[in-house]
Design a protein around this nucleic acid. Structure first.
Lengths: 120, 120
DNA sequence: TTCTGAAATTAGACATGGCTAATTTATCTA
DNA sequence: TAGATAAATTAGCCATGTCTAATTTCAGAA
């Protein structure tokens, strides 16, 4: 859960300027109360900083995790695309796969990708 | 959960002659009471047939699901191996990945694999 | 500056999947 | 055949992640 949230929060901050529960709920396909509860868990875990009714920010730890997740996501998507899979499927499958890929496998994906230069 | 269970039950029946909770617990890394509870859920779901204190059998639906899962598992493992990943990592990662791979991606894996002929 | 509508939160319920401790059942052996 | 032991089950607890209904807060428009 944490990974999906910090990844999305980082993206929202980048593209929208800030991350709001209502946006997160829409993007993750859950209801706002679920987001509120999960954000407070992330806060307890030291991944986000925030005051009630305000926008959500990532702590340093949160940013690190987000960066790790986004790198994995990028690599997995690029790899699937390099196999000829369509973008929508690649995105959808990567979402599920990225949480289960070891560093070893990720490196193998990168290596298999290198000659193509279709990512980054 | 159901997929992991039926997959393992099918394998145990094949290699051991029968599937017992204690074996399942060991293989999945959970405790026996957890297995009892989950088996009864699988029974409710129509995937297994069984009487208390007896071995576990798959219904037709359970066998179909097991077959589907095992095919996916085989393909994913073979594909990871074909990338040069070691067996242990391939097995471990496949365990997580297989539940998130669409048929489209699975076919892409098979296709990428064909020239190697290292599976089946 | 007040009020209204959207966003967020709280409260409380539910399903899933895990655990420990205690009990029951089945089986094998003495 | 009677006990002992290993397997299985039951009871009851916990954490996670979801929901709906009700309430609170905030911010912009009248």
């Amino acid at each position: 859960m944490a990974e999906d949230y910090v990844e999305l929060i980082a993206e929202l901050i980048e593209t929208r300027g800030e991350a709001r529960p209502v946006e997160i709920a829409e993007r993750l396909g859950v209801k706002p109360p679920t987001v509120t509860k999960n954000i407070s868990r992330l806060k307890t875990a030291g991944l986000v900083r925030r005051e009630p009714y305000r926008a959500i920010f990532l702590t340093d730890a949160g940013q690190d995790l987000a960066e790790t997740c986004r790198r994995r996501h990028r690599i997995v998507v690029a790899f699937l695309l390099s196999l000829g899979i369509d973008e929508e499927t690649a995105e959808r499958d990567a979402e599920g796969i990225e949480h289960h890929v070891s560093e070893t496998t990720l490196e193998a994906f990168e290596k298999a990708l290198k000659p193509h230069r279709r990512y980054k």
